[in-house]
Amino acid sequence: MVLFDQVIREVKGTVLAMPQARALVSGPEAPWQPGGNRNIVLKEDVGLELGGPECESLSCVLWTNDLSLVSDGAITLAGPDFSECMGEQRPFARIVLAGVEGFTEDNACERHTELDLVRYDLDLKGFMIRAVSRRMNEWCRISRSALRDGFSAQVLGSSLMGLMGRKPYVRSLEMLFVTSCAGDVARLKDLTSHTARVIAAMSKMAGEMSFDCGECEYQDVCDDATDLKKMRKSIMRKGRR
Protein backbone atom coordinates (compact mmCIF):
# COMPACT_ATOMS: atom_id res chain seq x y z
CA MET A 1 0.00 0.00 0.00
CA VAL A 2 1.27 3.45 -0.86
CA LEU A 3 -1.21 5.58 1.08
CA PHE A 4 1.41 7.59 2.96
CA ASP A 5 4.51 7.27 0.76
CA GLN A 6 4.34 10.78 -0.65
CA VAL A 7 3.64 12.44 2.71
CA ILE A 8 6.51 10.47 4.27
CA ARG A 9 8.89 11.93 1.68
CA GLU A 10 7.56 15.44 2.25
CA VAL A 11 7.55 15.30 6.03
CA LYS A 12 10.98 13.75 6.25
CA GLY A 13 12.42 16.23 3.77
CA THR A 14 10.89 19.14 5.69
CA VAL A 15 12.17 18.05 9.10
CA LEU A 16 15.66 17.21 7.90
CA ALA A 17 15.88 20.60 6.22
CA MET A 18 14.98 22.49 9.39
CA PRO A 19 18.02 24.52 10.52
CA GLN A 20 18.02 23.04 14.01
CA ALA A 21 17.62 19.43 12.89
CA ARG A 22 20.14 17.00 14.30
CA ALA A 23 20.47 13.26 14.44
CA LEU A 24 20.34 11.72 17.90
CA VAL A 25 22.16 8.59 18.76
CA SER A 26 19.57 5.87 18.93
CA GLY A 27 20.37 2.97 21.06
CA PRO A 28 18.69 -0.04 22.54
CA GLU A 29 15.42 0.52 24.36
CA ALA A 30 16.27 3.07 27.02
CA PRO A 31 16.28 1.61 30.52
CA TRP A 32 14.09 4.28 32.08
CA GLN A 33 12.39 3.57 35.38
CA PRO A 34 8.67 2.78 35.09
CA GLY A 35 6.15 5.17 36.63
CA GLY A 36 3.81 2.48 37.92
CA ASN A 37 0.13 3.18 38.32
CA ARG A 38 0.54 6.91 38.60
CA ASN A 39 0.93 8.40 35.18
CA ILE A 40 0.12 12.05 35.61
CA VAL A 41 2.44 14.98 36.10
CA LEU A 42 0.80 17.91 37.82
CA LYS A 43 1.66 21.54 37.17
CA GLU A 44 3.66 21.87 40.36
CA ASP A 45 5.98 19.06 39.21
CA VAL A 46 6.18 19.95 35.52
CA GLY A 47 9.63 20.60 34.10
CA LEU A 48 8.53 20.81 30.48
CA GLU A 49 5.17 20.77 28.75
CA LEU A 50 5.06 19.78 25.10
CA GLY A 51 2.16 20.26 22.69
CA GLY A 52 -0.33 21.26 25.38
CA PRO A 53 -3.83 22.48 24.58
CA GLU A 54 -2.57 26.01 24.02
CA CYS A 55 0.38 25.05 21.81
CA GLU A 56 0.77 23.68 18.31
CA SER A 57 0.86 19.93 18.47
CA LEU A 58 1.14 17.09 15.99
CA SER A 59 1.49 13.39 16.39
CA CYS A 60 1.10 10.72 13.76
CA VAL A 61 2.25 7.35 12.57
CA LEU A 62 2.96 7.07 8.85
CA TRP A 63 3.61 3.62 7.49
CA THR A 64 4.86 2.29 4.22
CA ASN A 65 5.58 -1.01 2.57
CA ASP A 66 8.56 0.65 0.89
CA LEU A 67 11.31 0.01 3.44
CA SER A 68 13.72 2.30 1.62
CA LEU A 69 11.73 5.30 2.85
CA VAL A 70 12.52 4.61 6.50
CA SER A 71 15.98 4.91 8.03
CA ASP A 72 15.72 2.23 10.65
CA GLY A 73 16.68 3.37 14.16
CA ALA A 74 17.15 7.02 13.21
CA ILE A 75 15.91 9.69 15.60
CA THR A 76 15.92 13.28 14.39
CA LEU A 77 15.23 16.23 16.65
CA ALA A 78 14.61 19.69 15.25
CA GLY A 79 14.83 22.13 18.14
CA PRO A 80 16.11 22.00 21.68
CA ASP A 81 16.22 18.71 23.53
CA PHE A 82 13.92 18.33 26.52
CA SER A 83 16.47 19.12 29.21
CA GLU A 84 17.41 22.34 27.41
CA CYS A 85 13.97 23.86 27.96
CA MET A 86 13.29 23.36 31.66
CA GLY A 87 10.27 25.37 32.79
CA GLU A 88 8.89 25.94 29.30
CA GLN A 89 5.77 25.12 27.35
CA ARG A 90 6.72 24.29 23.79
CA PRO A 91 5.06 23.29 20.54
CA PHE A 92 5.66 19.67 19.72
CA ALA A 93 5.57 17.28 16.81
CA ARG A 94 6.29 13.59 17.01
CA ILE A 95 6.11 11.64 13.80
CA VAL A 96 6.81 7.94 13.54
CA LEU A 97 7.76 6.51 10.20
CA ALA A 98 7.23 2.78 10.11
CA GLY A 99 8.40 0.36 7.46
CA VAL A 100 5.86 -2.43 7.54
CA GLU A 101 5.10 -5.71 5.90
CA GLY A 102 1.85 -7.36 4.97
CA PHE A 103 -0.46 -4.35 5.24
CA THR A 104 -3.50 -4.93 3.06
CA GLU A 105 -6.88 -3.30 2.65
CA ASP A 106 -8.23 -5.86 5.10
CA ASN A 107 -5.89 -5.19 8.00
CA ALA A 108 -4.44 -1.70 7.44
CA CYS A 109 -6.93 0.16 9.60
CA GLU A 110 -6.64 -2.21 12.52
CA ARG A 111 -2.84 -2.22 12.37
CA HIS A 112 -2.68 1.53 12.05
CA THR A 113 -4.80 1.84 15.19
CA GLU A 114 -2.55 -0.64 16.99
CA LEU A 115 0.53 1.39 16.15
CA ASP A 116 -1.20 4.62 17.16
CA LEU A 117 -2.20 3.18 20.52
CA VAL A 118 1.29 1.97 21.42
CA ARG A 119 2.03 5.36 23.01
CA TYR A 120 -0.39 4.55 25.82
CA ASP A 121 1.76 1.56 26.75
CA LEU A 122 4.65 3.87 27.56
CA ASP A 123 5.37 3.66 31.26
CA LEU A 124 8.17 6.09 31.98
CA LYS A 125 8.61 7.67 35.37
CA GLY A 126 7.99 11.42 35.22
CA PHE A 127 6.46 11.34 31.75
CA MET A 128 2.78 11.89 31.02
CA ILE A 129 1.05 11.62 27.70
CA ARG A 130 -2.47 12.57 26.65
CA ALA A 131 -3.58 12.50 23.04
CA VAL A 132 -6.55 12.69 20.74
CA SER A 133 -5.89 10.51 17.70
CA ARG A 134 -8.56 12.15 15.59
CA ARG A 135 -6.99 15.58 16.07
CA MET A 136 -3.48 14.14 15.66
CA ASN A 137 -2.26 16.00 18.71
CA GLU A 138 -0.21 14.92 21.68
CA TRP A 139 0.19 16.64 25.03
CA CYS A 140 3.18 15.56 27.07
CA ARG A 141 4.44 16.63 30.45
CA ILE A 142 7.87 15.78 31.77
CA SER A 143 8.58 16.26 35.44
CA ARG A 144 11.45 18.38 36.71
CA SER A 145 13.06 15.38 38.34
CA ALA A 146 12.85 13.33 35.12
CA LEU A 147 14.54 16.15 33.22
CA ARG A 148 17.24 16.38 35.87
CA ASP A 149 17.73 12.62 35.54
CA GLY A 150 18.29 12.98 31.80
CA PHE A 151 14.93 12.31 30.19
CA SER A 152 15.43 13.26 26.54
CA ALA A 153 14.04 12.87 23.05
CA GLN A 154 16.42 9.93 22.69
CA VAL A 155 14.88 8.21 25.73
CA LEU A 156 11.33 8.83 24.50
CA GLY A 157 12.13 7.86 20.92
CA SER A 158 13.99 4.70 21.85
CA SER A 159 11.26 3.64 24.28
CA LEU A 160 8.56 4.08 21.68
CA MET A 161 10.61 2.32 19.03
CA GLY A 162 11.16 -0.54 21.45
CA LEU A 163 7.42 -0.98 21.97
CA MET A 164 6.44 -0.53 18.34
CA GLY A 165 9.19 -2.84 17.15
CA ARG A 166 7.51 -5.69 18.98
CA LYS A 167 4.67 -5.68 16.48
CA PRO A 168 5.36 -8.60 14.16
CA TYR A 169 4.60 -6.61 11.02
CA VAL A 170 7.01 -3.74 11.80
CA ARG A 171 10.31 -4.00 9.95
CA SER A 172 11.87 -0.60 10.56
CA LEU A 173 11.20 2.55 12.56
CA GLU A 174 12.29 6.15 12.34
CA MET A 175 11.32 8.95 14.70
CA LEU A 176 11.07 12.67 13.98
CA PHE A 177 10.70 15.18 16.83
CA VAL A 178 10.16 18.92 16.45
CA THR A 179 10.37 21.31 19.39
CA SER A 180 11.76 24.34 17.53
CA CYS A 181 8.77 26.65 17.06
CA ALA A 182 5.04 26.79 16.41
CA GLY A 183 5.65 27.67 12.75
CA ASP A 184 7.61 24.47 12.11
CA VAL A 185 4.94 22.32 13.75
CA ALA A 186 2.22 24.17 11.81
CA ARG A 187 4.05 23.45 8.52
CA LEU A 188 4.08 19.77 9.34
CA LYS A 189 0.41 19.91 10.27
CA ASP A 190 -0.33 21.35 6.87
CA LEU A 191 1.62 18.58 5.20
CA THR A 192 -0.22 15.91 7.18
CA SER A 193 -3.71 17.41 7.14
CA HIS A 194 -4.71 15.18 4.24
CA THR A 195 -3.33 12.21 6.17
CA ALA A 196 -5.71 12.99 9.01
CA ARG A 197 -8.64 12.75 6.62
CA VAL A 198 -7.33 9.53 5.10
CA ILE A 199 -7.09 7.98 8.57
CA ALA A 200 -10.55 9.26 9.51
CA ALA A 201 -11.97 7.82 6.27
CA MET A 202 -10.28 4.50 7.01
CA SER A 203 -11.72 4.42 10.52
CA LYS A 204 -15.16 5.34 9.27
CA MET A 205 -15.08 2.58 6.68
CA ALA A 206 -14.00 0.05 9.25
CA GLY A 207 -16.53 1.19 11.81
CA GLU A 208 -19.62 1.59 9.65
CA MET A 209 -21.69 -0.66 7.51
CA SER A 210 -23.15 2.16 5.44
CA PHE A 211 -21.74 2.49 1.95
CA ASP A 212 -23.71 5.49 0.84
CA CYS A 213 -20.64 7.31 -0.47
CA GLY A 214 -22.73 10.14 -1.87
CA GLU A 215 -23.50 11.20 1.70
CA CYS A 216 -20.00 10.75 3.10
CA GLU A 217 -17.78 13.70 4.03
CA TYR A 218 -14.68 11.72 3.04
CA GLN A 219 -15.81 11.01 -0.53
CA ASP A 220 -13.08 13.25 -1.98
CA VAL A 221 -10.36 11.49 0.01
CA CYS A 222 -11.50 8.02 -1.03
CA ASP A 223 -11.82 9.03 -4.66
CA ASP A 224 -8.22 10.24 -4.63
CA ALA A 225 -6.64 7.25 -2.93
CA THR A 226 -6.56 3.95 -4.78
CA ASP A 227 -5.81 2.06 -1.56
CA LEU A 228 -8.91 3.45 0.12
CA LYS A 229 -11.04 2.42 -2.83
CA LYS A 230 -9.66 -1.11 -2.53
CA MET A 231 -10.36 -1.05 1.18
CA ARG A 232 -13.94 0.03 0.58
CA LYS A 233 -14.47 -2.73 -1.99
CA SER A 234 -13.02 -5.30 0.38
CA ILE A 235 -15.32 -4.22 3.20
CA MET A 236 -18.33 -4.21 0.88
CA ARG A 237 -17.47 -7.70 -0.31
CA LYS A 238 -17.36 -8.91 3.28
CA GLY A 239 -20.63 -7.10 3.99
CA ARG A 240 -22.39 -9.01 1.25
CA ARG A 241 -21.20 -12.40 2.50
Binding site: I40, L42, K43, E44, P53, T113, L117, Y120, R130, A131, V132, S133, R134, W139, S203, K204, G207, E208
Partner: peptide
Amino acid sequence: GEALTPKETLHALDYELFDALAEGDGFA
Protein backbone atom coordinates in the same frame (compact mmCIF):
# COMPACT_ATOMS: atom_id res chain seq x y z
CA GLY B 1 -22.35 10.50 13.27
CA GLU B 2 -18.67 10.70 14.18
CA ALA B 3 -17.29 7.18 14.15
CA LEU B 4 -15.06 6.77 17.18
CA THR B 5 -13.70 3.43 18.29
CA PRO B 6 -14.11 2.67 22.01
CA LYS B 7 -10.38 3.10 22.60
CA GLU B 8 -10.26 6.37 20.69
CA THR B 9 -13.19 7.59 22.76
CA LEU B 10 -11.54 6.52 25.99
CA HIS B 11 -8.28 8.30 25.24
CA ALA B 12 -10.02 11.40 23.90
CA LEU B 13 -12.06 11.62 27.10
CA ASP B 14 -8.94 11.10 29.16
CA TYR B 15 -7.31 14.03 27.36
CA GLU B 16 -10.34 16.26 27.88
CA LEU B 17 -10.65 15.31 31.52
CA PHE B 18 -7.04 16.15 32.21
CA ASP B 19 -7.53 19.43 30.38
CA ALA B 20 -10.53 20.10 32.62
CA LEU B 21 -8.41 19.91 35.77
CA ALA B 22 -7.89 23.32 37.35
CA GLU B 23 -4.56 23.14 39.11
CA GLY B 24 -3.99 25.18 42.23
CA ASP B 25 -1.24 25.34 44.79
CA GLY B 26 -0.85 21.76 45.92
CA PHE B 27 -4.15 20.47 44.56
CA ALA B 28 -6.19 19.99 41.38
